[in-house]
Write a protein that binds this DNA or RNA. Structure first.
Lengths: 196, 196
DNA sequence: TGCAAACTTTGCACACTATGCAAGGATTAC
DNA sequence: GTAATCCTTGCATAGTGTGCAAAGTTTGCA
């Protein structure tokens, strides 16, 4: 369909624009940055900026990595306990995120102050959650259960990033471990006593 | 501080604007509605519209009810199992939401298609989650545990509304019961087998 | 009651956002 | 090498959101 060179250039430019956006967002809030500034910093025209992203908040978020097909497959066909298999998927996904710590930090920074950016990321996460719910449906009988599990898994990633950004000297992987332990502990408390 | 009459009028106008927004959003997407239209439908000038809400998405969301101080207090001093006490708080909160089913439905409708609106609601929910986390810290030792519990509690409300909107003949309370059962089931699965 | 202070609404001007369209430039396929 | 395709860009334009100041309301107090 699209030629490989064009594809590569597109991705490079998209990334360039995201970097320019995040860098500017370190100095002042996204609200106070104009699309002109971003475009200039990324070396393209304002019009071209809008060919890549529908708005500056989307440019800040960029295109976060989805859970890979392999890890989802591993979860689907998993042999261990459900908890262990989900944790394995999250660990794998975290490896991807660790490759771009600067971007993760920049995105987190934007999310803290910008509502529109939060909404955009949320839209992306809804998709991830849905995909994960489908996968989990092959491991549990009840759909609501799968939904709850998927929600917790996706949130664990976000929670880890938040914790990582707010804790000096903690790695993303360590943050995930802490968040995960909290989740397991919470689950133990919620399920320990019968509701009815 | 502010006189009671002025206070009441402000709330009435705010609500009027929200209703006008949600009503228009039934016919076309929020993107395609102009602030002028909303203002005209609500009987105020465009400029006044912006005195009440910073943008049309915020007008659609309005001012959702927070968990009441009484219910939070009940949870803090709760005597039953943690799960039962959290469920009680959610049930109480749902009673408040049921009073304005039309608005809940309208807001849900907007959230489905509008990212900015999602972000705005999310910002509100972050605040609710934080407040609930503080409350739960008096019931559990670990902060991450409290965070996970609060996240699940707040999400249960949102999940219930989603389920309610997509299921013919189900009440909000019933939806909450279904979502809650799914959450408890998921918790059982996550905590049943040791992670390490 | 009547008047001054406080607050609200509104119109207007203006900077910024985002999109359609068409011209021009680069890349691809053959 | 050339035609088709895709990308970038400038320009025009509808819409968003804010500051400011004038006009209108409400409030508190004499």
């Amino acid at each position: 369909m699209t030629s490989p060179l064009r594809e590569r250039r597109r991705q490079e430019t998209a990334r360039e624009i995201q970097k320019a956006t995040l860098e500017l967002a370190m100095q002042k809030s996204v609200e106070d940055i104009t699309t002109e500034e971003i475009a200039a910093a990324a070396g393209v025209s304002t019009r071209t900026f809008f060919n890549y992203y529908p708005n500056k908040e989307a440019a800040a978020i960029g295109h976060p990595p989805s859970f890979s097909e392999e890890t989802k497959d591993a979860l689907r066909k998993g042999t261990g306990s459900l908890a262990a298999d989900i944790k394995a998927l999250l660990d794998e996904h975290m490896k991807i995120l660790v490759r771009d710590e600067a971007i993760v930090r920049g995105v987190g920074n934007v999310l803290r102050t910008n509502e529109k950016a939060r909404g955009i990321l949320d839209g992306f996460l809804v998709g991830e959650r849905r995909a994960l719910t489908e996968v989990l449906c092959s491991r549990v009988e009840n759909r609501q259960t799968a939904t709850a599990l998927a929600k917790n898994a996706v949130d664990a990633i976000g929670g880890s990033i938040f914790l990582w950004e707010h804790t000096e000297g903690m790695s993303l992987h360590q943050a995930l471990d802490v968040v995960w332990d909290g989740l397991i502990d919470a689950s133990r408390l919620l399920s320990s006593s019968p509701t009815e």
